[in-house]
């Protein structure tokens, strides 16, 4: 699954640390999501999209792999 988390984080001028704190996860998790190594749970995905005030498909793009 591809995502545009890094883009949105930059748009909102947030560091990985700040975003992690807002979402209640570790900075490593944010890094892993941005690198596409880890697909977040539905709960975390909703938390992310609500934080940025966008729809889930604006950030997460399902490419049919896995």
């Amino acid at each position: 699954m591809k995502n545009r988390l890094k883009v949105y984080r930059a748009m909102f001028n947030l560091t990985q640390e700040e975003l992690a704190k807002k979402l209640g996860v570790s900075r490593q998790t944010i890094i892993a999501i941005e690198k596409g190594k880890y697909d977040p749970s539905l709960k975390l995905a909703f938390k992310i999209t609500r934080l940025f005030g966008v729809k889930i498909e604006d950030i997460f793009i399902y490419d049919g792999k896995e």
Partner: peptide, 12 residues
Amino acid sequence: KGIVLEDERLEL
């Protein structure tokens, strides 16, 4: 102190 030591990625 609000430090996150465990989250869903670590759980997985």
